[in-house]
Structure formats: structure tokens, C-alpha cells
Amino acid sequence: MRHNFIDRYSSLDSPLHTLESRTKLLAFAILIVGVLSIPTDAEAIFFSYLFAAAVLMGISQIPLGYIMKRMVVLLPFIMLAAVAAPWKGYAGFGALAVRAVLCLILLILLTNTTRFAELLCGLRRFGFPQIVVINLGFLYRYLFVLMEEAMRMKQARDCRRVGRAPLTEELRILSSMLGTLLIRSFERAERMHSAMLSRGYSGDFPVVAPRRFSWHDIVFLAGTSAFVGATIWAR
């Protein structure tokens, strides 16, 4: 079983993909701050951001359908937040929704144009605490292992079950499956730790990072900063 639903297109070779991870982290952070600071009634600025997002999508070569699909999964959560703030009225709701869509597009672009490992390297070189970055790395690595384990357990359950059990019984089975998964993960963590110790782990998690900045990075960073600067100055 293979899964790559998080960063399926991250190994393409578009201009956006070849940028340094730090450049992208910084540029997308600037863009997101820009999106969040758009005034509610500034329609022209909203459109210019939508246009910019479309340009980035075009450069990235990621299929539009995929971005839409990812968005459909994530959007309800954000819409919930928008609904939870009814005092803002229709205009407020609209602005919030567009901001959410823009931010999502940007984040989907960031995670799908950068390999997760490089994203982590970027975070690390920006001075994020090592322990946070390592744990994010483990999360990414073992999410798939855990999913496979859960899927196998589900298959085993389905193979031995005929028809539907009453709800209480279903819940009981589900909770014992979750418990088993937890214990297995715990044991795996112990084995992993042994494996880390065996390869000389002593508290520090060193990495080598061969990527360097090129003039593309400078152009991209300057471009996005200028764009965000212009939208703030224009209002």
C-alpha cells in the first residue's frame, strides 16, 4: 500500500519546485500576511490576490482539479469559523471566505511544491527548535505506517464480521482497535529509539543540507514582497 496524498506533486520539476525551501517558506508567509491584512471592502485587492494565486498555480504545474479536491476537504473547517462569527454580516462573511480560500490555495501550493523533508530543513535553518522539527519529521514518516496498520486491522475485522453488529458492539470493537493501535505505536516508538541509539544517537539530530540560494530565489522573494507591498500601499 502506498499513500502520498499530502504532497503528491512535490517532486515535480516546475520553477516553483526548484526554489529553495526557505525562499518559499518566507515568500508564502509574506503572501499569507498580505491576504490576512486585506480590508473587507477592498474588492480590487482581493481580485489581485486571486490573480496572483492563479499565476502561481499556473507556474507550479499542479493540476487544478487536485488543488480543488484538497480544498474541498479542508474548507468546511474554515467555513465553520466563518459561520461562528455572525456579527460580521454578509460582507464580512464573504471576505472571510475569500481569505480562507486564498490561504488554503497558498498552503496547498507550498506543501505540494516542496518536499516535506526540504520544508523541514527550511524550518530548521530558520531556527525552529530542533525537537519540533524532528517530531514533525516523525509525524510525516509514521503517519503512513500507522495508516497501513489501521487499514490492515480494519480488513481483519471486516473478514471476521458478518452483517452489522449493534451500535454499542461496533463502538466497543472500534475502541479496542484504537487501543491496540496505541499500544503498537508505543512499542514501535521503543524499537525506533533502540534503532536510533544503535546508530549513535545522543540527543542531537544532525542533518546535511546541500541546497543553496540562486538568483531565482532572490527574484521570487523580491517579486512577492513587492506585490504584497504594493497591495498594502494601494489602499
Binding site: F116, F138, Y140, R141, R191, M192, G200, Y201
Partner: peptide, 18 residues
Amino acid sequence: DQLFCPTVFEDIAFGPLN
């Protein structure tokens, strides 16, 4: 259990770096 890094390269580099 043994391959805990995001990429193969990082996993193989882990020991020598330590």
C-alpha cells in the same frame, strides 16, 4: 523501525553524522 527520517539520504547520513 530503523528508517525514521523523512528521506533515505537523511536516514543513511544519520549514523555517520552522529
